[in-house]
């Protein structure tokens, strides 16, 4: 008995398997995704692509393959998400799409499966836009990194990323 590795009724969260986590993400009506330690999407809810106004399929692609982040693969890979030291990461993002300013609050949460595999649970929440003027590309601001011990590192710089 190990106290946690012998659970037979693995539920939707917490001590679940990778497969349970995938089922969990696929079942929600929210805009959610799941990435493996290579930052590759292994599950995406039905609402995520439409929420982000994306048309290309997510599953199988790496986060850094998204057009907005393709130049930042190294930086994304350097985030210590998979050694257990981070609990989460959040940022606010905005983009002009078809003349409308769209905004999202993005949450990235570390998930530990029963096999001790670390995954990233991504939750996209539509949010009020903050920009007062037009801009090109894609803007990221209000970055917060939450350590597993509860410490929060926050930055408010406004970074424009190419589309």
């Amino acid at each position: 008995m190990t106290g946690y590795a012998t659970k037979e009724n693995c539920l939707g969260y917490g001590l679940s398997s990778r497969e349970e986590w995938i089922r969990r993400v696929l079942a929600t009506h929210g805009a959610e995704g799941l990435c493996d330690r290579e930052w590759r999407f292994i599950a995406v809810s039905a609402a995520l692509p439409s929420s982000l106004n994306a048309t290309a399929p997510f599953v199988g692609r790496r986060f850094a393959d998204l057009p907005q982040f393709k130049h930042y693969a190294g930086a994304i890979a350097a985030i210590p998400f998979f050694d257990g030291s981070l609990r989460g990461m959040q940022y606010h993002s905005e983009a002009w799409i078809d003349g409308d300013l769209r905004a999202w609050d993005m949450d990235f949460w570390a998930v530990c499966t029963e096999a001790h595999e670390m995954l990233v649970h991504i939750v996209a929440n539509r949010a009020p836009a903050q920009a007062k003027d037009t801009f090109s590309g894609f803007r990221v601001s209000d970055l917060r990194i939450i350590s597993a011990d509860g410490r929060v590192t926050a930055g408010w710089s406004d970074v424009a990323l190419p589309r």
Partner: peptide, 14 residues
């Protein structure tokens, strides 16, 4: 690792 990510305290924070 489990306690830091799956305890009630961790979920409260999340």
């Amino acid at each position: 690792l489990l306690v830091r990510h799956n305890s009630l305290s961790a979920w409260k924070h999340r």
